[in-house]
């Protein structure tokens, strides 16, 4: 059985907000390592890989690996019934036909209990090859969200060019073109806002902005984001949390 108590329930609410528009149903794979999820969007263009490590919960107990098949829209609806400061406890027994959720307020005088019906989801996991990326950009997650949203005004695609000087996001469309360049600035006073680039080789890649904007729903989870790129391989967008991560992979657009 699974028992996982999350002191900051708001974290789980934010995680659901970050994935529910990209994927509809997914298995939460519970093991002694923690709770993981891997799922592709319906059009097989993007993939979400989530890990909530066991040490982020207190207590965390999972005697036997369990796959909890969840409709993410339903789960996010139930999680909206939890207060932002509530402690959330997830429980499931080995038959895994329901997920029990308990929300306790901080004064411990209001306890709400919900049960969500689970489903059988036949999902196959994809093997993600170990990749040494040619370019890794670390930047403010809020800045990344702003750039994606701004450029979406112009086009449904963005070209990302990374050199050792900086990273340029450019878009061209019917109404015109636009570009935002962030210079590498590791010396700025505000570490949170610095743009840092590790580069083996310059890269220039095209991606769908619709998906990138969707990924930025994870912005409330982390102040920093990393973009890992190599020519003609999927982009990795990673938001690191205190005890885990949310990673998005996006297949590139490639010229014929």
């Amino acid at each position: 059985m699974l028992e996982a108590r999350l002191q900051t329930g708001a974290l789980l609410k934010k995680v659901l907000e970050a994935i529910k528009e990209l994927i509809t149903d997914a298995n939460f794979d519970c093991s002694d390592n923690g709770i993981a999820l891997q799922a592709m969007d319906n059009s097989h263009v993007a993939l979400v890989a989530l890990l909530l490590r066991h040490d982020g919960f207190e207590p965390y107990r999972c005697d036997r690996s369990l796959a909890l098949g969840v409709n993410l829209v339903s789960l996010s609806k139930v999680l909206r019934c939890a207060g932002n400061d509530d402690i959330i406890t997830l429980k499931a027994d080995d038959t895994a036909d329901v997920l029990s959720l308990t929300f306790e307020n901080t004064d411990n005088d209001r306890i709400s209990e919900y049960e969500l019906k689970l489903m059988d989801i036949d999902s196959e996991h994809l093997g993600i090859p170990d990749t040494t990326y040619e370019a890794v950009v670390q930047m403010s997650s809020a800045e990344f969200a702003r750039i994606c949203k701004d450029l979406q005004v112009l086009s449904d695609s963005v070209q990302i060019d990374v050199t050792k000087e900086g990273v340029k996001f450019g878009a061209k469309g019917e109404l015109g073109s636009g570009a935002v360049t962030l210079k590498q600035n590791g010396n700025v006073d505000k570490e949170e806002e610095a743009t840092l680039i590790e580069l083996q080789q310059n890269v220039s890649l095209n991606f769908s902005l619709k998906y990138l904007v969707n990924f930025t729903k994870a912005t409330p989870l982390a102040s920093r984001v990393s973009l890992s790129m190599s020519s003609e391989v999927p982009l990795l967008v990673e938001y690191k949390m205190e005890a885990g991560y949310i990673r998005y992979y996006l297949a590139p657009k490639i010229g014929e």
């Binding site: 297949a251 657009k253 490639i254 010229g255």
Partner: peptide, 14 residues
């Protein structure tokens, strides 16, 4: 114009 690739051409089912 660039064409959207499928993720399945990069990542294979385990």
């Amino acid at each position: 114009t660039p064409v959207q690739k499928s993720l399945l051409s990069f990542f294979k089912p385990k």
